[in-house]
Design a protein around this nucleic acid. Structure first.
Lengths: 194, 194
DNA sequence: ATTACTGTACCGTCTGGACGGTAATGTCAA
DNA sequence: TTGACATTACCGTCCAGACGGTACAGTAAT
């Protein structure tokens, strides 16, 4: 079984190396700024040699691509694994809201790594844009009113961008209040539809 | 020569060089990715030599700082210059919403330059964060309900981040619908307060 | 022996920015 | 008026260092 197949099947023989490198990249990006991410620094932080790093990721672009793909896959998985309690409408709205929140609350977000990928290779924004678009479509299909989906989506994107830039503009209380308001918005519209 | 450009920037007697450099930086950042902004490229695009560039901005960091400051100042000026029609409550909410929209609709947004500054020197996020926080406080003070200000703020941040990354997720119609919904939200709450 | 890696040494390129010019535009005293 | 010097605005070259990536020798397990 070669490396590529194993990665695809999610069955790493030594799961530590790849995962450690990805985590290290996010850390470094956060520390020195997403534009100043260097392979040397990532290798050092991950506890592997540069040769080792380049064995797993044959180029910097590949590493950054992997970060983006991991990020997207992870979000998708969490969303798919979210327990749909009611089975009724607005379930996806709710799941999206809650998953986005835990995603934002994560202590070491891989977001800085994603940011590094985007600013160094703008074309890596494409899969992210596609993902977001599909997400919005799902929200729209699930929402009673289009505007509900739009507002929820935009507000979550706002919250996400804040985390992305490490800008703690909203206090924890304010964030909670905003989420509460959005929950009300979703619930209200769902009740209308029912 | 360029009267329009000169008027947009306030004081300088010979504003051409400085303004051209700032504009060139935004263009280059957009073209090659915010992380790959180089002084050589900026100088070439601006039609000045590298020495000339470094005369106006003694270091790359100074150039990036100037981009951020210009951006913030510009937004603040537009907001201050917005005609307050009613003189009543929710005026700032409305002005913030409309100014944000024209700011987003701008054909050549300097946003890529700002992004370049942030990702190369994360500490440059600080003044932006402060600005956003003050903005939010003003919105909260003007809003009848706190949640209204929060939702509006977050949604606008979401829209802004979309433009920042050149991700056209929402169509023009969807954007308009979202803005309409937000206008309704503001108007409704203002009427309640009155 | 092969596979699956690690570690090191090195190379070419790019980049920030230091530096030494230079031409035009004041500024001011004689 | 003029010559002497100062300042402003800019040019073009050079260089040390950092970076991405390659080459290759080594190793431990299968």
């Amino acid at each position: 079984m070669d490396l590529v197949t194993r990665q695809r099947l999610d069955v790493p023989a030594r799961p530590t190396a790849r995962a450690k490198i990805l985590a290290a990249a996010a850390d470094i990006a956060r520390d020195v700024g997403p534009a100043n991410l260097s392979l040397d620094a990532v290798a050092a932080r991950a506890g592997v040699s540069k040769g080792g790093l380049l064995y797993h990721f044959p180029s910097k672009a590949e590493l950054l691509k992997a970060i983006v793909e991991d990020h997207l896959r992870h979000f998708e998985e969490e969303l798919a694994g979210y327990p749909c309690l009611t089975g009724g409408p607005a379930d996806i709205l709710r799941a999206y809201l809650e998953i986005s929140m835990v995603d934002c609350a994560r202590k070491t977000p891989p977001a800085s790594g994603v940011l590094a990928a985007i600013v160094q290779h703008p074309e890596m924004m494409v899969p992210i844009t596609v993902f977001k678009r599909q997400m919005l479509d799902r929200l729209k299909a699930d929402a009673g009113e289009e505007s509900t989906a739009l507002i929820l989506f935009l507000a979550m994107e706002g919250l996400r961008s804040m985390k992305l830039f490490d800008a703690e503009v909203l206090s924890a209380e304010e964030t909670e209040k905003a989420v509460e308001a959005l929950r009300r918005l979703i619930g209200c519209k769902a009740a209308e539809a029912a």
